[in-house]
Structures are given as structure tokens and as C-alpha cells.
């Protein structure tokens, strides 16, 4: 399965990555190589095999409903790029 520059541009849009046309073209080539590698999976007979998302087939532990965190705003916001009145600032969000 090969991808072209416009496929890469669509993926980059979904992944919110700025990519120049030249970089997209180069990425199309290298990602096509990767897709060729992973394309080998198609030959595998996996009929009836349950997908395995976790190596150990383990089960989730549930935690008790307790408030264990205290206000750490000042330390957690110490390295925020833009803050005002305790809020993170971003370019205008349009609804």
C-alpha cells in the first residue's frame, strides 16, 4: 500500500502536524516503505484469532472513590506557555 503527498497532507491535518509540500513528498516515500513492510501482515492467517491489546491479558484494578489530590495549580502552571487568572490561554476558540 503506497501513499502519496496528498494522503500525507490529510494525515498531517488529522495529526495536527505542519508539513511543507517537500516534507510531505519525502514522507510519502518513506511511509510507503514502512507500509510495504507492515503489508506483510496481510499474508498471515489470523482467522479466529482474538486481537491482543495487552501482552498479559490482565484485568483492570479499580480504585476507591477518594479525593487524593490537592491543589497544585501554581506548580503545574509554572511552565505553561500562557496563563491568566489561572486559565490556560489559547487562540480564540470559535463555537
Amino acid at each position: 500500500m503506497a501513499v502519496d503527498q496528498s494522503d500525507i497532507e490529510k494525515l498531517a491535518e488529522l495529526a495536527r502536524l505542519e508539513i511543507s509540500p517537500e516534507a510531505a513528498s519525502a514522507a510519502a516515500q518513506s511511509i510507503s516503505q514502512v507500509l510495504e513492510l507492515v503489508g506483510q501482515l496481510q499474508a498471515a492467517d489470523t482467522s479466529g484469532v482474538t486481537p491482543m491489546a495487552h501482552p498479559l491479558d490482565a484485568v483492570q484494578r479499580l480504585r476507591a472513590d477518594e479525593v487524593t489530590e490537592t491543589d497544585q495549580r501554581s506548580s503545574l502552571q509554572a511552565m505553561a506557555p500562557a496563563i491568566e487568572d489561572g486559565l490556560y490561554l489559547v487562540p480564540r476558540v470559535v463555537e
Binding site: L41, V49, P51
Partner: peptide, 10 residues
């Protein structure tokens, strides 16, 4: 498919 193959590998 990859997660199925993963089980085969395990």
C-alpha cells in the same frame, strides 16, 4: 490484524 498477529507471536 497486527493485534491478532501479536497473539500468534505470544
Amino acid at each position: 490484524k497486527a493485534q491478532q498477529v501479536r497473539r500468534l507471536i505470544k
